[in-house]
């Protein structure tokens, strides 16, 4: 298993600990990563796309062209990057007119979209390429007794016609991955609700209030912690808990894990090797719950 690693912006520039944990975990599974040195922002499927669709598509196509040239499929660590790159891939493969238009623009940069490199999300690699069985075998520290609320986020599921990762209304794959680690996937209301990150740049109070909606329901269901697959969701729920406290005085005390971190802990990596100390909501209390 060898992939062109697409880091995006958020992880390398704000949450390098997630990059660190992910690299360490993937190494344990023998996955080879080749850094995409020429990659830019995916670009952002919300802000940038809202300003100019053509630019968004063209820069995304450039990133795909870079991977084409590397001869590898792309591995993304972020839902936003996943949506952008996969949507661009599907649009340009199905819409010949658009593909021509974009390649005319890319030609000015000496690039061409050929559609060879496929786009994969980290969870896809864990679920499909590595597989639940292999993960179960690698678990040295089963997370027994830990009730984990899986938050998929929006851009790994929808639009499902394009992304086809999992059932958009009743997704199961992240829950199954959590189960493979020995933990208990905790169900809760409004499971497919957005984290609200998209409103951060527009009106942050709304963004925080949207994050709060999920935390209320996760807490109501009795989960010990949350697991996410995207750095934006991570920030919304991790740092977000402090912002909510400032706004409404509510305390949730629900640690948030990026999936690599939870997996890394289960296969025996130390908290230090996973950068767990860098979370805003401390994880120690919850790790103690594991039998």
């Amino acid at each position: 298993m060898k992939y062109a690693l697409f880091l995006g912006c958020m992880i390398p520039l704000r949450l390098p600990n997630l990059e660190y944990a992910t690299r360490n975990v993937l190494a344990e599974f023998g996955v080879e990563l080749v850094d995409m040195r020429e990659a830019t922002c995916c670009p952002d499927p919300i802000g940038i796309r809202n300003m100019d669709y053509l630019t968004w598509l063209a820069i995304a196509a450039r990133n795909l062209a870079v991977a084409d040239e590397m001869g590898l499929d792309i591995l993304t660590l972020c839902n936003g990057c996943y949506e952008t790159l996969k949507t661009a891939y599907v649009t340009l493969t199905e819409d010949a007119e658009m593909r021509e238009k974009i390649n005319e623009i890319l030609a000015k940069a000496n690039r061409e979209f050929k559609g060879k490199a496929k786009v994969k999300h980290l969870l896809e690699v864990f679920y499909h390429d590595i597989g639940l069985q292999k993960i179960r075998e690698m678990v040295k520290r089963p997370l027994e007794g830990l009730k984990v609320a899986a938050h998929y986020g929006c851009h790994i599921l929808r639009p499902s016609e394009i992304l086809k990762f999992d059932d958009p209304e009743n997704p199961r794959k992240l829950d199954e991955l959590v189960e493979a680690l020995g933990a208990t996937p905790q169900q809760y209301e409004m499971k497919t609700l957005c984290c609200g990150a998209g409103l951060r740049n527009v009106m942050s109070e709304y963004s925080i209030r949207m994050a709060r909606e999920k935390l209320v329901r996760v807490k109501e269901a009795g989960a010990d912690c949350m697991v996410v697959a995207c750095p934006f969701c991570f920030i919304q729920y991790d740092m977000g808990q402090f912002e909510i406290r400032r706004l409404t005085k509510e305390r949730f005390d629900i640690p948030v894990f990026y999936f690599s971190e939870l997996l890394g802990y289960a296969i025996g990596l130390s908290p230090r090797e996973l950068g767990l100390g860098m979370h805003r909501v401390k994880v120690d209390r919850v790790l103690k719950k594991i039998r």
């Binding site: 880091l7 390398p12 520039l13 390098p16 990059e19 660190y20 690299r23 850094d35 995409m36 040195r37 020429e38 990659a39 830019t40 300003m51 100019d52 053509l54 630019t55 063209a58 820069i59 450039r62 623009i105 890319l106 000015k108 940069a109 000496n110 690039r111």
Partner: peptide, 21 residues
Amino acid sequence: LPELPKPNTEEIMKIFEATGF
């Protein structure tokens, strides 16, 4: 961690010019 990606900004500028961004 490895060095951050260093994309060719000239190349990207050409795209921004072409799209009007």
